[in-house]
Amino acid sequence: MTDTIPASRPIRRRIRALSDRSIAWLFVAPTIFLLLAVNIFPLIWTIRLSFTDFRANRPNREVEWVGLENYRRILTDPDIWNTMQVTAHFLVWTIALQVLIGFTLAWLINRKFRGNDLWTTLIVLPMMLSPAVVGNFWTFFYQPQIGLFNYVVSFFSGVDPSSFTMIGSVTLAPWAIIIVDTWMWSPFVMLICLAGLRSIPDYIYEAAEIDRASKWRQFWTITVPMVLPFLMLAVLFRGIENFKMFDLVVQLTGGGPGSTTELASINLKREAFEKWRTGYSSAFAVILFVTVFGLASIYVKALNKVKDR
């Protein structure tokens, strides 16, 4: 006991002697270490693997350095370009629909009416569910014989419910996944837009009223420009999320029929953990990372410009 007291004094003194900068580093260091361990190191490792023919299921096999061969194969593989097209189709349509529906819902919810809070809660429910669960129960909705979706379409159009299959048809399956993602994530866009709408001070509209600006003009010259940064943020979040979309679509269609809904992430998973072409899939992952990172950087610059306006 008596030994420890004198020993602790110099430590305290030393801590007191630390500069603010050193203390700041002391606090940040664990986070930086964690980031390096779980993000940076795997990234560097993946880049290294992308130049080899390593297969994770064959640890005893000799690993060969193949240079840029994996990248060449990927960039000349029509199947990869097909998955990129499928991903782009999914991305463009989900974002367009979610922006449209999300903004409309936000605009409607922003108006004061009875039961406003209840409606808001009900609308945001889908985004609180697990994507795997959503995918699973929508497969039942889309079931041609017992599915609710087919019966609703049948009710309005008069076609036989079992005459079409949403997730088994080459034409309809890409729209089936877009519908579900839109149903699930439009509320997210709505929430962000709602924050934007509520941030617009009332006096701006009052001034516009005094200037006798029409509601239409107020919408285009006040509402839209002021909500735009929020909307762009929502597009960024949804864009990144949907570029790496996996769970929902795997549950719904498994990438089928054929490769009709095989998004880039599903293809990547197949290459990495079903075919076990680890080197090849690492190269594909690097390409996808560079694509997302590059596009997101350009987009963030555009977003900052809009905010500064």
């Binding site: 080459v170 029929p257 054929g258 490769s259 197949r270 075919k275």
Partner: peptide, 15 residues
């Protein structure tokens, strides 16, 4: 997996 893709593309998707 190569077989799965080739067969599904042809049989189910009709490609």
């Amino acid at each position: 997996q190569d077989t799965q893709k080739r067969f599904h593309d042809y049989v189910v998707a009709g490609t």
